[in-house]
Design a protein around this nucleic acid. Structure first.
Length: 425
RNA sequence: GGAGAGGUAGCGAAGCGGCCGUAACGCGCUCGACUCGAAAUCGAGUUAUCGGUGAUGAGCCGGUACGUGGGUUCGAAUCCCACUCUCUCCGCCA
């Protein structure tokens, strides 16, 4: 959530941000709603002030043994009017709140203004896409041929956009999780967490999935609980409602969890392979940072995601998302895109965002500076990394003419020394 | 799932219709005194949020908040109802 005061005092700052994002939310609507709220509030508060003063008088009279029945009759009327006006004020407040909850974060000044993914500037490239002396195959095809990925059985068990992994593929998934977690916890100072995969409405609201993106979530029937679409949700909400010790910042957590996404609106997109599944495993990084330091922390987190790809010898590039392509809660996002030779394109494998105080304000995550007033922390999140898309990249980039797949050396310790996935014979 | 107990400041906890919410008392924290320094001791300070007025500051005026939401009442932390979470016991269960 953005700062109420900011919208009140600098509506044009928000108006520009919304225009840059190509949002259809209009600040004028807010000014109307908030104006009405303030009007009602001033009126009802004045009445309550009178009531409180009179009530104190009643108490004093009763103590003195005097008759207060005239005053009481008057107060009855006043109380009735307050009750009506209170209800109206509550409605006005709720309208303002609801409007605010649907407003996206304000992009940082360093974020390029643009319409959609075509306007995302490239920051850097690493590695060289491999030159194949044969036509490279798609990862889904390779995975099925090698007996590791089974889409038919998955669709029988569950439906479309699911996969069953067997043997080397299941093992590779587990190897990647361990490899990623080890790297983050041993070398980068992240605290490993095993959070719940089901969270309540408040938690989903804290990170910005709700109320706007309910359709993207799987909901538990008859309960106000949802399957997490990313570990960002439970990890960021870990400190909801807390005031953190300033000295503890930055705080860094990582977790490997399954992620559940309904992929509403993605019909027909990425239907081949394992790029877009309803369920996938991902290691997520989350950081809580001091506001003065959060953009440094973002650079640091991107470097953590990049390092994993470099250790896996996968060519990638980094782009900055432009204003029109950024997520709801983010003030600045870098996407790391891995090279997929069959599609001959870079595809998103990690998204690292600085959400500034947007989530912290929603979830109530503060810190108290020495001698100062409590302020909101900045929250950051980044994938590091999803296993499915990583497997896709490993299969496509490591494929050989004979149908086998060569794995990067870094994974050997996690794969019982296996460095080549051989075709079944 | 059943029974009971409970949810009040950073923590523990008192209050159980108006004299109690910048909320007793204890701890913690901040500042000061004492000290070469520290401990101990002594003194002072320490809720958040909204509206108005100031400069988006300080201050001042007012409102709200005792798990959440309703109700009773002129007035609710206090009485009533529903929900929720925590703890204890029982049941069920990987």
């Amino acid at each position: 959530m953005i700062d109420l005061k900011l919208v009140q005092k600098n509506p044009d700052v928000l108006a520009k941000a919304l225009a840059d994002r190509h949002s259809d939310i209009r600040v004028d609507d807010f000014l109307k709603l908030d104006g009405r709220r303030r009007e009602l509030l001033a009126e009802v508060e004045a009445m309550k002030g009178r009531r409180n003063a009179a009530s104190a008088k009643v108490a004093a009279m009763k103590r003195a043994g005097e008759d207060a029945s005239d005053l009481l009759r008057e107060l009855g009327d006043l109380s009735d009017r307050i009750k009506t006006l209170d209800a109206e004020t509550d409605e006005a407040k709720a309208a303002v709140q609801e409007w605010l909850m649907r407003v996206p974060n304000i992009p940082d000044v360093s974020v390029p203004v643009g319409r959609d993914e075509n306007d995302n500037p490239e920051v850097l490239r690493w590695g060289t896409p491999c030159d194949f002396d044969f036509e490279p195959r798609e990862h889904g095809d390779i995975g099925q041929t090698l007996g590791g990925l089974d889409f038919e059985r998955a669709s029988r068990l569950s439906g479309s956009r699911f996969v069953v992994s067997f043997g080397w593929a299941a093992r590779l998934d587990r190897a990647l999780i361990n490899f990623f977690l080890d790297q983050h916890t041993r070398n980068e100072g992240y605290i490993e967490v095993c959070p719940p995969y089901i969270v309540n409405r408040t938690t989903m609201t804290g990170t910005g999935q709700l109320p706007k993106f309910e359709d993207d979530l799987f909901r538990i029937r008859d309960a106000e609980q949802y399957l997490i679409p990313t570990a960002e949700v439970p990890l960021t909400n870990l400190h909801a409602g807390e005031t953190l010790d300033e000295a503890s910042l930055p705080l860094a957590y990582c977790a490997a969890t399954p992620c559940f996404r309904s992929e509403a609106g993605a019909a027909g997109r990425d239907t081949r392979g394992i790029i877009r599944m309803h369920q996938f495993n991902k290691v997520e990084m989350v950081r809580f940072a001091h506001p003065d330091d959060s953009f440094n922390q973002l650079e640091l987190m991107v470097s953590h995601a990049r390092l994993l790809l470099e250790m896996l010898e996968l060519p990638y590039r980094v782009i900055t998302l432009c204003t029109g392509d950024m997520g709801f809660s983010s003030a600045k996002t870098y996407d790391v895109e891995v090279w997929l030779p069959a599609q001959k394109t870079y595809r998103e494998i990690s998204s690292c965002s600085n959400c500034t105080d947007f989530q912290a304000r929603r979830a109530g995550i503060r810190f108290k500076p020495k001698g100062g007033k409590a302020a909101f922390v900045h929250t950051l999140n980044g994938s590091g990394l999803p296993t499915g898309r990583t497997i896709a990249a490993l299969l496509e980039n490591g494929q050989q003419k004979d149908g086998s797949v060569v794995l990067p050396k870094a994974l050997a310790p996690y794969m019982d020394g296996v460095t080549v996935i051989e075709p079944r014979r």
